[in-house]
Design a protein around this nucleic acid. Structure first.
Lengths: 195, 195
DNA sequence: GGGCGACTAGAACGAACGCTCTATCCAATG
DNA sequence: CATTGGATAGAGCGTTCGTTCTAGTCGCCC
């Protein structure tokens, strides 16, 4: 039962592998059998750990990926005191991580969200909540820096949208520049609220 | 041979249908047989018009969708003289179109781009060129409004990234607000270059 | 020691995938 | 009229998909 054992449980291995695969290949493009193989688990184990099948695996994987991204944001925001510099640091961290992954590990939820748009899948709900969580952590930072609640909310939404879009642009162009540029422009935008 | 006949050719029907389906379901999630059926063509006709198979259909479809989006941008940018208002108008037009489609017709290339990231598919190239074309039309507008070349380029990249990301956010939340907010913030950003 | 839950192993299901193939239709051309 | 070639029609290829199933192995706790 211990979640804190040295070796990750089968379920944890499945979630981690699934998160990375979905991030890279999308929900539709990732097969259950591929997840099982790369997680060093058998197909039976996957269905044992996730009776809900592929969708249940994806939900857990998206939550996991979303949390990772959340902590990356939180860490960068805490590192820099000035909100403009903090958001620019977020963009820089994303750019570095993206380059180091060979431009394939982008936003963990965008692909899955887009692929399941027409459906009323649970996946949609998870993506929505995950995005909302990211906005919250940015908005929180802005408020703590003296932003009005409504300003903070609107700017935070824009910051997340911009980072998301810039990440895609950076991936397609295999270049850090779109993310760096977005970071600089977001910083400039945020400073207009400070003077 | 005439591309200008009143009735769209089989090839044109296939391209239009494929563009919409890929936009909604992604590249992997859209089957050749589904394209054929919805385009009122047979499977044989699809492979006759596109000997390159699914990837060739997708390339033509993405180019088509990219051009549509291009004209939407161009039209909004021409309608408003002030660059800040023009970009905000782009966001507003996207928001309206998105709502009218039931939140499913988003960016025509994002999904396909993300799904084929690992590969060296022709699809990647088309997505990259399409994104670049959108940035160019925004940069052109900014330059014509007195922006320095380097400023225009960086702001244009950010504008497209932000619109892209805000569109995804709007789709996931089934709300115009993320796009409206992005439009307002982009307008604010652009005005910082004018004073 | 007995029971039980976690996990392994792999066969098999129906359905859908991208794609190839043959055959037929029909309008235009010689 | 005969021929040609684009378009249509659909059967069928091999493969993979998500899922279910049975059977067996292992370690842990009452």
């Amino acid at each position: 039962m211990s979640q804190y054992s040295a070796l990750p449980s089968t379920r944890e291995r499945i979630v981690v592998v699934a998160a990375r695969l979905i991030q890279r290949q999308g929900y539709v493009g990732t097969g259950i059998k591929q997840i099982a193989q790369e997680a060093q688990a058998t197909l039976g184990s996957v269905y044992h750990a996730f009776p809900g099948g592929k969708e249940a695996v994806a939900v857990a994987a998206l939550q996991h990926g979303g949390k990772e991204f959340f902590w990356l944001l939180k860490d960068a925001l805490r590192r820099e005191e000035d909100p403009a510099a903090a958001v620019e640091a977020c963009a820089a961290d994303l750019a570095t991580a993206l380059r180091e992954s060979g431009w394939i590990d982008g936003c963990p939820v965008t692909a899955a969200a887009l692929e399941t748009l027409g459906t009323d899948s649970e996946i949609q709900r998870v993506c929505r909540e995950t995005l909302r969580g990211w906005e919250d952590v940015v908005a929180e930072k802005l408020v703590s820096c003296g932003f009005a609640e409504t300003d903070a909310r609107e700017v935070a939404t824009t910051v997340i949208s911009t980072l998301e879009g810039a990440e895609v642009t950076a991936q397609v162009n295999r270049s850090e520049e779109p993310l760096r540029a977005a970071g600089r422009q977001l910083a400039r935008l945020i400073r207009t609220y400070q003077d």
